[in-house]
Nucleic acid binder design. Sequence first.
DNA 1: TGACTAACAGATATTGAAATCTGTCAGCGA
DNA 2: TCGCTGACAGATTTCAATATCTGTTAGTCA
Lengths: 197, 197
Amino acid sequence: MNEVVVLTPERILEATEDVLRRFGLAKATVVDVARALDVSHGSVYRHFPSKASLRQAVAKRWLDRANAPLAEIAEADGPAPERLDKWLRTMIEIKYSKVCEDPEMFRTYLALAQDACEVVKAHKELLVEQVAHIISDGVKQGVFEVADAKAAARAVFDATVRYHHPAHSDEWNDPAKPARIDALLALLLKGLEACKR
Amino acid sequence: MNEVVVLTPERILEATEDVLRRFGLAKATVVDVARALDVSHGSVYRHFPSKASLRQAVAKRWLDRANAPLAEIAEADGPAPERLDKWLRTMIEIKYSKVCEDPEMFRTYLALAQDACEVVKAHKELLVEQVAHIISDGVKQGVFEVADAKAAARAVFDATVRYHHPAHSDEWNDPAKPARIDALLALLLKGLEACKR
DNA sequence: TGACTAACAGATATTGAAATCTGTCAGCGA
DNA sequence: TCGCTGACAGATTTCAATATCTGTTAGTCA
């Protein structure tokens, strides 16, 4: 018993997330994180080379956790149009609920997204892959007519940027939002679909 | 001769634009504007109720001037798909050239766009009207198949937000940009088009 | 040896006093 | 009368001194 608690990257990330939520992005310092873990701040630098890398690691963890449901939809079976619709609506809903429920972490993510941060870019790339995967399925099923699935995925991702990029988050309370999303997604799906007659 | 130069709103706007370019949005003051016009700053307040309203008036003038070519395309004759394509590419090109050529005014516009400023919202509404007008033409020509032209216009506007909203301006140097725009516009036009076979 | 601390230099943030700005208005001069 | 000025109060910004933070490293302890 009386086990020695070791300092792991995971524990540091956990503590950093707490500190970020408590003090906010602007005020949170590495010293705060060290204090929360009851170690010297030098110890934190043994596991993360800089404050920026720590922040990015926290954001990555947060993004991966938040977007887990999307991977599932991308990998599922069933008709591609419904799945793409579901995937996009889920992404939009995730982002929206995070702004409301975890605003301080969202601000961190916004700050990182505004620098052209590697972590966020990589994550975005991953999401585009998922969309491309659904679209490829649609092509195989004969319901989508698309020359380049990856390019089409990027276009769909670009086209919905207003509803998932944090820079637009203050417009997400627009009462007309659901109707506008419906119109936008309908337009995009029609654009992908093979002409039926 | 020796004509008395009267202080008009127009002259104030002119001077304000100069001051904004010279000192930048953050540093420009009403006192600077007054100094440039060789009057007391109280005189400026005789024509504009606040610094904010002055800034907005400058932005409006700037936006109206910059976007003049768009109105022309919207009102022109000819097949709607080509016109819509041209209109969107022109808007994107205007925004891009302004970031490059007039960065300080662009920053002002960005700042205004980030507050939910009335002037910018009204201007956006005007642009959506223009798109709706082109789309209606397309419906009349039988080349577009759309239930609600206004809603479709909003969807098209939303879908291209990444390439005309100033919040994304630091991504406009992406070398893949032209290809991505091509893919996006093709997708949108296909989404609007009536099925031909 | 290897994880940690304590002390450090340079960079960044905070603070409070002083300067400047915004917006108002009584009054001047044409 | 009408357009402008100059002085003003309160809000905001600047500036420089001070404190805190970031990132490094020599050295401690188990």
